[in-house]
């Protein structure tokens, strides 16, 4: 058993294969819960705070929550980097492509300076 342990030790140090303990998972979940609470707080205080702060805060918290679940619960942080690259490729591709698509709806009012009344995004 000691032989196995030592083998695993070196393995870990080389590849950072260490999985978090249950206690750490609970801590992470509590952090996620706290972040959700802050999100809801931002929503409640929506009218008292600057709009842009609320929006940026909410999007920032969303990204942090996304990252925590991906890195720890889906253990991308401890896994082969190829998996992170593949997943990030899909994610970034989706964000870029759909962002361009939605912007092109917004940009269409550049047509001769006439705003198209039929565009739902601009109403």
């Amino acid at each position: 058993m000691t032989a196995t342990d030592s083998h695993v030790d070196t393995h870990e140090q080389e590849h950072e294969y260490e999985h978090p303990s249950d206690r750490k998972y609970v801590t992470i979940a509590l952090i996620l819960g706290a972040l959700t609470a802050i999100e809801i707080l931002l929503f409640v205080l929506e009218d008292d705070l600057p709009r842009s702060l609320v929006k940026v805060g909410l999007i920032g918290l969303m990204i942090v929550k996304f990252w925590i679940v991906g890195a720890y619960f889906m253990h991308l942080k401890f896994d082969n980097k190829v998996l992170t690259q593949l997943f990030m490729f899909g994610l970034v591709l989706a964000i870029v492509v759909y962002f361009i698509m939605l912007s092109s709806f917004e940009f269409s009012f550049w047509n001769d300076g006439i705003e198209d009344p039929g565009l739902p995004g601009n109403s």
Binding site: L93, I100, S104, F107, S108, F109, W110, D116
Partner: peptide, 18 residues
């Protein structure tokens, strides 16, 4: 190949920037 799709839509009113 992911960045050229709207060339199929040049006449559909996507605006000069696009």
């Amino acid at each position: 190949g992911w960045g050229v799709w709207a060339h199929h839509m040049f006449v559909s009113g996507i605006g000069p920037i696009s």
